[in-house]
Each structure stands twice: as C-alpha cells, then as structure tokens.
Design a protein around this nucleic acid. Structure first.
Length: 415
RNA sequence: CGGGGUAUAGUGUAAUGGUAGCACGAGUCUUUUGGGAAGAUUUAGUCCCAGUUCAAAUCUGGGUACCCCGACCA
C-alpha cells in the first residue's frame, strides 16, 4: 500500500492522559483511536495486525479440531436466567428494547453455546465437539485501564468443548494448553502457563497464559526454569520459596493475562439440560470446558513487550506489513522515484506485503521517524546514495545496522 | 463501587472577575530531502446547564467526561 493513500497520519504527541505504552504508541502510529474510556476503534493499520492474530488463532484452533461459528452479541434475558447469571453477573450490560423486553450484551457465551449444543448433541457419538468464535464481548468494567489491556468492549476468541467423559475433557484441556502456547509464541510472546483460580466456573484451578511485563496488573510467582507458575490470588508459594518441581528459587513478576482455560464440567449443561445418551443408554449432562484469548488485549500486550523509545517493534508474523519501503527523493533526479516505484511493484508481484512511503514533501527524518513508530520489521530505503551503487538499503527494525544489497538478494531475504 | 485528581484549539500550556494568548501540530503555497528542515499564509478553544455580577475561563451550585489508586475482574 502507498502511504500517501493511508488515511491515518502519525502524531508526534497524543494526549498524555493515556499513560500506557500501548495506548500511546498505537494511537500515535494510527493503529487505534479512543472513542471513550475503554472503547477503541481499530483503524486500518490496527485491523491488519488484528487480522493476522486472528488467523494465527484460527489455524491453531482448527488444528485441534475446532469449528468456527459466530454467535450473537445480543442475548435475550431468558437464556441468562436459565443459569441464574442474569442476577449474579454484575458486569453484564443490560438493556431494554421498545417493547420493554430485556437483553444483555454478550459478556461471554456459555449460555448461548450450551443452547446450541443441546439442540445438536443427542448421543455420545456426537461428542466430543469443539466450537469457537472470534467476537466482540461487552463487560461493564468498573475501571478500564492501560489502553487495550482492559476495556469495556473487546474481542475474544472463545472456544467451548463438549465431552462424554471427564477423562476426555482433561485430555483436550492439555491439548488446548499446548495450542495456546504455540499461538502466543507465533505472536512473539513468551507466556507463563500459570495456575489460577477457577473463578465462578469451577472449584478446580484454571490456567492463565501470562506475559511478564511491568505493565501488567496480575502478580505471578514463577520458576525461572519454567517448571512452575502460580497466580498470587491462589498462591500457596511466594517469592523466595523453592520450586516444587526443580527446587530453584521462585521469582515474582507483574503480568498481563492474555489467555485463560477453564474446566466447566456440568455447571452449564445441568441447569440448561444439555444432555446426551451414553453407551449404556443412560442420559447424562455433557461435560464442558472453555478456553479464551483476547486478540485485542493481545495487541496491547505485544506492544508493551515489543517497543523502544522510538516506537513499536512488531514481531514479523503479526506486523501490518513486512517491508516499509521508503524513497528519499531529490527533485532533480527522477530516477530515484522510478527505481523505488519499480521495487514496490516487484515486491507486490512477489506477494511481499509492503507499505511504500512515497509521500512528497516529507523529509527523510520524518519518514524514518514514522517507520520507527509504525514498527514494520524490514525497512528498505531507495535514495541517491543507494542508487549510486544500484542497491537497496535494508535495516531491521530491531537492529541498528544497515546493509546494502541488490534487488534479487533483497527479495530472497524478505520473500 | 470507595478514595483522590483534572477539565481552555488536535497536543502542551497562559490569562488579579475586565481584549481568550503562546508554542507545537494540522491545512495551503514555495524552497527543501539520510533522522521530525525553512519561509509565507490559514485553521482551530474556555466540557454542559443554571446562578451571582455591569462584566465569568476565573466565583457558587448541579451535571457530564476523562485520569490515577483501591476493590472488582468469565
């Protein structure tokens, strides 16, 4: 894409109100725009990142048998009354239509998915079943926080699994755990797979996927060897204790929770009568699990971890573009622009995602500063300097050094 | 929800109860083009509603929005 066509511009400064790095950098770069407290638009650049993350999640969910669907965000009161949560879930946004009928904006979808399951699952032969969606959630948070890290409206990938036996559910739980670690790795994040409370769903522990960063709001005690990690909320251990697995001294860190997996058991299938007939012809409630990742929060977490004082440093797999091509023109030398134009076309022909900064009247310094802020992994420069040697200057966003290579090498490098 | 704080142009700020000003940004034109260049020119603001007063950005009351700490956080 040509940068002159991109309707967003970068800003040198944005309101100092939003102090978090992710809010500052994503706003300055033109990825997101705040509409109100905890309510953000994703602008074209931000949406490109979001789509990449969503696709990584889809791929990994599909690998473990997930089928994607899309549930409504508007939920009739009755479905939430079936589980009693119309009364107990105080984070629910509730509203009335003109006939004074009550609705909730979906904060989570156990009720809706269980309703679907009870209409399609009859026999143990219909199980197991793994359904997921990527959809907007609404939660009436008492306090929003830190840009995309805690919002009232956010995206969630929520998967729900349905099983005939507890053993099968447990086995799948471990599968999802592995898939989640892979997703976060692909997004450029190391996560601590952390024991946490089961919340209102379950007496059993759940697992949270925690990213260590000072910007986090959770506190986790973890073993540096990676054998153990526990949320402070349930901590049986503390900093300085020995790891129960390897004996190494535990450390403490602030973290951002980017994913969470839960045991549901029959908590929803029982009250909602989602039953199946087992091999012995007896009727039993379906055993369930649920698994969530917040792609929008994930973007916030990635920026918190991957940035420097100049801007964002996107991991390659989720960057909005792979190459940021910059032309530094001299008015008198049309050949520079022609060379850059041709490289842009060649890259596109090779399927390389490229943002081409061909804006006129912008100085080299401005273009470099914008490139650093936007954070595309590879920066390619065409200028008088490079033209002289008939080369392209290549620089990685996370490195200082530049190198001159020819087009063939370049395309091989980034292609 | 408890506590604290802030509301003046896109951002940052100034203005004893008496002319709303400055810088940056943004727009236009020209000259520039290897780390946010220069000149000219333009643009845009007192959160809302009442009250006090000859006069309100400023004082009073109410509301709203936003930020921070805590609690909460499937």
């Amino acid at each position: 894409m040509k940068q002159s066509q991109l309707f967003t511009k970068t800003f040198k400064n944005v309101s100092k109100d939003d102090t978090s790095a992710n809010a500052q950098l994503l706003t300055r770069g033109g990825f997101i725009q705040k509409l109100g407290a905890g309510i953000y638009s994703f602008l074209p650049l931000g949406l490109l990142v979001l789509k990449k993350i969503e696709n990584i999640i889809r791929e990994e969910m599909n690998v473990i048998g997930g089928q994607e669907l899309l549930m409504p965000a508007l939920h009739p009161k009755e479905i939430w009354e079936e589980t009693g949560r119309w009364q107990t879930a105080d984070y629910l946004y509730k509203l009335q239509d003109r006939q004074e009928k009550y609705f909730a904006l979906g904060a989570t979808h156990e009720e809706v998915i269980t309703d679907i399951a009870r209409k399609y699952v009859f026999s143990y032969k219909d199980l197991p079943l793994y359904l997921y969606q990527i959809q907007v959630k609404f939660r009436d948070e008492l306090r929003v926080k830190s840009g995309l890290l805690r919002t009232k409206e956010f995206l969630m990938k929520d998967m729900y699994s349905f099983h005939a036996s507890e053993e099968d559910r447990k086995e799948y739980y471990e599968k999802v755990k592995k898939a989640y670690v892979k997703i976060f790795e692909r997004c450029g994040l190391k996560v601590l797979v952390t024991e946490a409370s089961g919340g209102i769903f379950s007496k059993e522990y759940s697992h949270e996927f925690q990213v260590a960063t000072p910007a986090g709001e959770d506190i986790v005690y973890f073993c540096p060897n990676g054998d153990f990690s526990q949320n402070k909320e349930i901590a049986g251990k503390k900093t300085g204790d020995k790891c129960p697995e390897c004996g190494k001294t535990l450390e403490e860190t602030k973290t951002i929770e980017v994913g969470n997996i839960f045991t549901l058991g029959t908590k929803y299938s029982n009250p909602m009568k989602a039953m199946f007939i087992d091999k012995n012809s007896s009727k039993k409630p379906i055993i369930m699990g649920c698994y969530g990742i917040g792609p929008s929060r994930l973007i916030g977490a990635i920026v918190e971890v991957h940035h420097d004082d100049k801007g964002i440093i996107w991991p390659e797999a989720i960057a909005p573009f792979k190459v940021h091509l910059i032309v530094i023109e001299g008015k008198e030398d049309k050949k520079i622009k022609d060379t850059a134009d041709k490289l842009y076309q060649d890259l596109q022909a090779k399927g390389v995602e490229v943002l081409y900064d061909e804006r006129e009247g912008k100085t080299a310094g401005e273009k470099f500063a914008d490139a650093d802020l936007i954070g595309i992994p590879y920066r390619a420069v065409i200028s008088k300097k490079t033209l002289k040697e008939n080369k392209i200057e290549l620089k990685k966003r996370d490195e200082e050094k530049t190198k001159l290579i020819n087009e063939e090498e370049f395309i091989k490098y980034v292609g």
